[in-house]
Amino acid sequence: MDIAYTIAPGKGDTDLLLHGFARSLMAQGIRVCGAVQVNSESCGTGLCDMDVKVLPTGPEIRISQNLGPAARGCRLDPDALEQVVGLVSARLHKGANLLIVNKFGKHEAGGRGFRPVIAEALSLGIPVLVGLNTLNLEAFSNFSSGLARCVPPHSSALGAWFEGLETELGASA
């Protein structure tokens, strides 16, 4: 089972890192499936709209809800997230060298969201890279049975991890 995660320290840094890593791999001809977050700042609210790009070619889907300026708490639109999950699952079966999931978040910790797609990819022998925050680290560790590797939040470290997988797969073929 080849599953790894990365945690970048700044707000939105994991999103930028995974998006850039996915673009780099796709430019090399690697078949990448999954979703990366591409946020945009909402006009005057101080909050960002959460947009996710389905890999490799889109679409981009807004997964946040506008709950008004006084709203607190989670703005995730669970229906939009499930739409993204369905698109990623369908593309996974067309073949992939890597599944990238922008975040193992609250929904995944609760058994929903990308959780079944991650399990599906692993059962197909497709490596998985997940963005994570420390709030969901314990749930992710339980989900991955403690077998996930932590990769430092740098494109070079992600590249070395992926190249190591390709070397392992080539040696076993």
Rank of each mutant, 00 (worst) to 15 (best):
M1V: 11
D2E: 10
I3K: 01
I3Y: 00
I3P: 00
Y5L: 05
A8L: 09
P9F: 03
P9G: 04
G10W: 15
G10S: 15
G12F: 12
D13Q: 12
T14E: 03
D15E: 11
L16E: 12
L16S: 14
L17H: 02
L18R: 00
L18A: 00
G20Q: 05
A22I: 10
S24R: 15
M26C: 01
A27F: 10
Q28T: 10
Q28E: 14
I30W: 09
V32K: 01
C33L: 12
A35N: 04
V38H: 09
N39G: 08
S40N: 10
E41T: 11
S42M: 13
S42F: 11
C43W: 15
C43Q: 15
G44Y: 08
T45L: 04
L47S: 09
C48Y: 14
C48A: 15
D49F: 14
D49P: 02
D49H: 14
D51E: 09
V52N: 02
V54Q: 05
P56H: 08
T57H: 14
T57W: 12
T57A: 14
G58H: 08
P59N: 01
E60G: 07
E60P: 04
E60S: 11
I61Y: 01
R62K: 13
I63E: 01
S64L: 02
Q65I: 07
L67Q: 09
G68L: 08
G68W: 01
A70F: 10
A71T: 05
A71F: 10
C74P: 03
D79P: 07
D79G: 13
Q83G: 11
L87F: 10
L87K: 11
V88P: 09
A90S: 14
L92W: 01
H93R: 13
K94F: 12
G95Y: 06
G95E: 03
G95Q: 07
N97Y: 10
F104K: 00
K106H: 10
K106N: 12
K106M: 10
K106L: 13
H107F: 14
E108W: 06
E108A: 10
E108C: 06
G110C: 12
G111R: 04
G111D: 06
R112N: 09
G113S: 04
F114Y: 06
F114C: 04
R115F: 06
P116D: 03
E120H: 11
E120P: 00
E120M: 02
L122Q: 02
L122R: 04
S123G: 05
L124H: 08
I126M: 00
I126A: 04
P127I: 06
P127H: 02
V128W: 05
L129V: 04
G131H: 09
T134N: 15
L137A: 15
E138F: 12
A139F: 04
A139P: 07
F140P: 01
S141T: 15
S141K: 08
S141W: 09
F143A: 05
F143Y: 11
F143L: 08
F143D: 00
S144A: 13
S145I: 06
G146I: 03
L147W: 00
A148Y: 02
R149G: 00
R149Q: 08
R149L: 06
C150Q: 13
V151Q: 01
H154N: 13
W161R: 03
W161A: 05
F162H: 00
F162P: 00
E166M: 14
E166I: 11
E166V: 13
T167M: 10
E168S: 15
L169Y: 12
A171P: 07
A173S: 14
